[in-house]
Amino acid sequence: MNRITKIISYITLIILILTFNFFLPRVMPGDPLSFLTGSPTMDMPIVLDEEMRAELLAYYGLDKPLLQQFYDYMLGILHGDLGWSIYFGAPVSDILTGALKWTLLLVGTATAIYIVLGIVLGAISAWNRGSKRDVELLTFVLSISSFPSFFLGMLFIILLGVNLSFFPISGAQTPFAEYSTPFEAALDTFRHLLLPAMTLVIAHIGGIYLLMRNSMLNVLGEDYILTARAKGLSEWYIMHKHAMKNALLPIITMIALRVGFLISGTIFVETVFAYPGVGRLLYDAVTYRDYPLLQGAFLIITLVIITANFVADMTYAHLDPRVKHE
């Protein structure tokens, strides 16, 4: 597949998701205005009479033909209009842009640690295959990554946050804090970032570790490794120049897929740590049945994941000369 078909398929995917987002509230059972009246479990359900209903339907353009609605929706998205959040009483797009920077900070930090750590551990394990160190590392990594992220986060909060009072347990910065220097602000942000990022990395590390270990084991069975040994190259050199590079190439797109899982994981981690990102907004939206916000948050998270996959795809084409020249 060359670059242009790839780009086209990504654009198709995004249109597919936007279409899905448009139809979801419309095909689901129930009243199209239920997002306004809230869930029946809400404290004060709003009751609409016929006249108000008609007026509201007209106001939201829900009485227009479906195609017209779809056109308006797409046009709105292109203008950054994602609707109005009932719970926060503000435009969804404003709320999301405020939250996105925190999510990107968290995801960026976690992804960087995750990829490097996973690859290094996987390579070490494969290099010592069958030995005691490999078995121990394998058991250890599989064990810690069996913790679901939300449970691990709760444990961290109790053990490291509350009991040791070593880490702040919620938020992205200390509320009402006044910083004298930017450095102080950065430090505060970092302290808040550490636990959520750690949780994300630990809960997901198993996938990338196993991927790298398996790919590396396959490479180590290849003849050119034997040749490199026969040439008398140092173990360190073989591991870095011959084994790791070749083991990484086939799994880059799969790594990108795992990064997608990690980004999805922020929904749980941000919820547990009350981290003010998009994932936490998704949780709030679910709790308060704030459907416009829910759809907006879903859209943003999905777009972030797809962008990550896209970047990986493009990098892959750069790294593998066989793909490049095709």
Binding site: S9, I17, L24, S264, V286
Partner: peptide, 21 residues
Amino acid sequence: VDGFLAIPRLPLIIVIVAFLR
């Protein structure tokens, strides 16, 4: 299948389930 695998599974499931009972 490509389409299914390309769309992030978890956020999608969350949104659908939130709309369903």
